[in-house]
Structure formats: structure tokens, C-alpha cells
């Protein structure tokens, strides 16, 4: 199959943009974790957070899992 110049350009651009947007996923996950941890501590005891990043051509998917043994009762929430 023969590609046109525009199609070749499009494919190259897609690769370049995906690489650029990747940034530093581990660093981003760490920042996200610490932010979520800070907030979730207001609502639950000893929360654990797992962040996973999945990237496709046109979107970035963040899977955030939050685990805890006990949720604080609404009356004693501290902000």
C-alpha cells in the first residue's frame, strides 16, 4: 500500500506528539498520589493510593485506586 506524503506526515506527527505528551509519567503519578493522599486523609484512615497511566493516540487514561480499612464518620471530618 502506497502512502501519500500527507499520510506519512500524519503518522510521523502522531508519533512525535505521543512521545512529547508522555512527559515523565512516574513523576506525574507521584505528584498525583501525594495530592490525592492529602485529600483522602480528610475522609479515611491510612489510605493507600495506586495510580496507573495508560496512553493512547488521543487520550490519557488515569486509573486511580484508593484503598482504606476505615472511612471517617461524616460528623468528625477535618478540613
Amino acid at each position: 500500500m502506497k502512502f501519500t506524503i500527507a499520510q506519512i506526515g500524519k503518522n510521523r506527527l502522531k508519533k512525535v506528539l505521543v512521545d512529547d505528551r508522555e512527559q515523565d509519567p512516574e513523576k506525574l503519578c507521584d505528584v498525583l498520589k501525594s495530592d490525592f493522599l492529602r485529600i483522602s486523609k480528610c475522609y479515611m484512615e491510612q489510605p493507600e493510593i495506586f495510580v496507573e497511566v495508560k496512553e493512547s493516540d488521543d487520550e490519557i487514561l488515569f486509573n486511580i485506586t484508593l484503598k482504606t480499612r476505615r472511612v471517617k464518620s461524616i460528623g468528625v471530618l477535618s478540613f
Binding site: T4, I5, A6, Q7, G9, K10, L13, K14, D58
Partner: peptide, 18 residues
């Protein structure tokens, strides 16, 4: 050039940049 397929189409650019 776009009709000839020698330049990236405007719609593609919009799709890339959202």
C-alpha cells in the same frame, strides 16, 4: 497540496490539537 495529498489536512490538525 492538500487535494494532492501532499500536506496534512486541516481536520487532522484539529484532531491532533483538540
Amino acid at each position: 497540496l492538500m487535494v494532492n495529498g501532499e500536506m496534512i489536512d486541516v481536520d487532522e490538525i484539529i484532531n491532533f490539537l483538540h
